[in-house]
């Protein structure tokens, strides 16, 4: 699946042999046996590891995990699609997550999120066409005192107002 816009390589696994090796090494370190049920118990941590390495979980990565844990790919995909932490789409270099927890909400996070959507012309969970920003919402990072809170690649901006949105985006570079 080569995408001309972002010139993604045809195969992530081929493009990054060292990441593939790291994932394989991790999977080899797991106590995988004949009992599919027990193997499944290793699935979520494997997906965490895989997403940590590749940034997202395209089909080929899910297949690698499925094959090694001897699970059906459909089960793996069912799990990936259930948990909001996992994504099978590439994410932008900057992951902007607006906290939509209750504390942030009552302090106006909705308007902040709307402003991000408007400014970047993307919806929640979407990535800008240039692959730079992925906009998302999350629920409470436990920094409610700074509400509304926006996380950019793990960095917390506190007391954000719609006016500051442009600043935050400009700062990314």
């Amino acid at each position: 699946m080569a995408c001309s816009a972002c010139a993604a390589p045809a195969s992530l696994l081929e493009a990054f042999p060292e990441k593939r090796a790291a994932l394989e090494a991790y999977l080899s370190s797991l106590p995988i046996g004949d009992d599919r049920e027990r193997n499944r118990g290793l699935l979520i941590q494997s997906l965490h590891r895989a997403q940590g390495l590749f940034g997202y979980l395209p089909e080929e990565v899910q297949r690698l995990v499925a094959d090694r844990l001897r699970l059906h790919l459909s089960e793996v995909y069912g799990v990936v699609s259930f948990y909001s932490f996992f994504t099978d789409k590439p994410v932008g270099r900057y992951r902007i997550n607006v906290c939509m927890g209750t504390a942030c909400f009552v302090r106006g996070a909705g308007k902040v999120l709307d402003e991000f959507k408007r400014y970047l012309s993307v919806g929640e969970g979407e990535t800008t066409p240039d692959g730079k920003f992925t906009l998302g919402a999350l629920r409470c990072v436990g920094a409610c005192s700074l509400a509304p809170v926006v996380m950019v690649n793990g960095f917390v901006h506190g007391n954000v107002t719609p006016k500051r949105v442009a600043d935050i985006i400009e700062q990314c570079d």
Binding site: H72, S74, E75, Y77, G78, S81, F82
Partner: peptide, 9 residues
């Protein structure tokens, strides 16, 4: 056969 699964939520 194992091809069906719940997807999303």
């Amino acid at each position: 056969v194992g091809i069906l699964s719940g997807v999303r939520r």
